[in-house]
Write a protein that binds this DNA or RNA. Structure first.
Lengths: 185, 185
DNA sequence: CGTTTCTTTCAGAAATTTTTGAAATCGATG
DNA sequence: CATCGATTTCAAAAATTTCTGAAAGAAACG
């Protein structure tokens, strides 16, 4: 029969494994490992923690903790809270995975897709009108422009699709289920 | 009036800018900058190139070129070709942005989501049955399991949704357009 | 075969990213 | 407004990723 201490140890161990595997995903989400781990910690424990608790649990420096927490706040996937009679700031993760996912997608569109789109528009608009060229040069120019246009329309559709998907109305899970059904038709 | 040489220079310049901005997205896609640039080069020029041409154009070493090309082949977004009377291998990018996107999503699910899912299942199944605990310890265990389940169901839905979206039937653009319409209903 | 041409590998170098920790800043409190 | 705890900043260090180039390996040719 398991003693309470054993169970607690097992809980901590399971949490640590969760945190570690979440941390490994960090690269995929374009954030640092520590940032992902801090988020995983707040998510899986489900309770507000202050900087020192996070530092201790993840074995990281104060500076690193501060930076990572700040970044998570910027991404909008954790928020500040306070405890009565305690000067420290506490942080808690969004407990709804779907709204967390939305924040991440929204942020990534803003940081990655939008700048790329802007640059591609610029390139397109700066490119010479091919009317006055003939032969090979003209052919190449036209082919290039075609590919640029294709990429632009791809990115625009993706952006719109993501924004639609990510719009805050309704539960993400419901929407996803609806989508899965509709895709079959 | 523009001379052919000018136009050619402008073409090269526009291509280089495309390559550079594509390269900046590399991090976002979980690949190295060179890998993204090599892909951009093959995509925007639209013609097969051999290793030396890629090396020269991107100013990278032979080793780097070889590795990057190999990785792109592994991802399935470029393919080998050959020229008659030429021993060298030539490489060309998938010219359909949507099918390229599909390959990337498919690969990332395989590399990132699936291993994470496997680990999370493992964690769940290894966690102790909470029946024999009481009070605080039990509460925490249950709360943890709930969050783990939520994350699991989220990942499973995402995986399914992506696979659906990414299935090779029909044009991606059409599908996306259809989706956008249907989402409105 | 032996030679030549092309491709891959991989140990070390270079570049980049992440983390640390101490100092500076902030801000609540008496 | 001086103090003290909490937080942020940032230059330097550490860790990680990427790149190079020379050497080894394959494959095509005569």
């Amino acid at each position: 029969m398991a003693k309470p201490a054993d169970q607690h140890d097992q809980l901590i161990e399971a949490q640590d494994r969760f945190i570690a595997s979440w941390g490994q995903m960090a690269g995929a989400w374009g954030i640092s490992r520590t940032m992902a781990e801090a988020h995983a910690l707040l998510y899986i424990t489900g309770r507000p923690m202050n900087t020192d608790e996070i530092m201790d649990r993840l074995q990281i420096s104060r500076g690193n903790a501060s930076m990572s927490i700040r970044a998570l706040l910027d991404w909008g996937i954790i928020s500040r809270t306070h405890k009565r009679g305690d000067r420290k700031e506490y942080f808690e993760a969004d407990q709804d995975v779907w709204s967390m996912f939305r924040s991440i997608v929204r942020e990534r569109i803003k940081r990655e897709v939008e700048p790329l789109l802007a640059t591609l528009y610029e390139i397109r608009d700066a490119s010479p009108a091919p009317d006055d060229a003939t032969g090979q040069a003209q052919k190449e120019l036209l082919a290039n422009q075609k590919r640029l246009e294709e990429m632009l329309s791809f990115l625009k559709v993706m952006e719109k699709l993501s924004q639609r998907f990510v719009s805050p109305s309704g539960s993400g899970l419901e929407l996803a289920a609806k989508l899965l059904t509709k895709l079959d038709k």
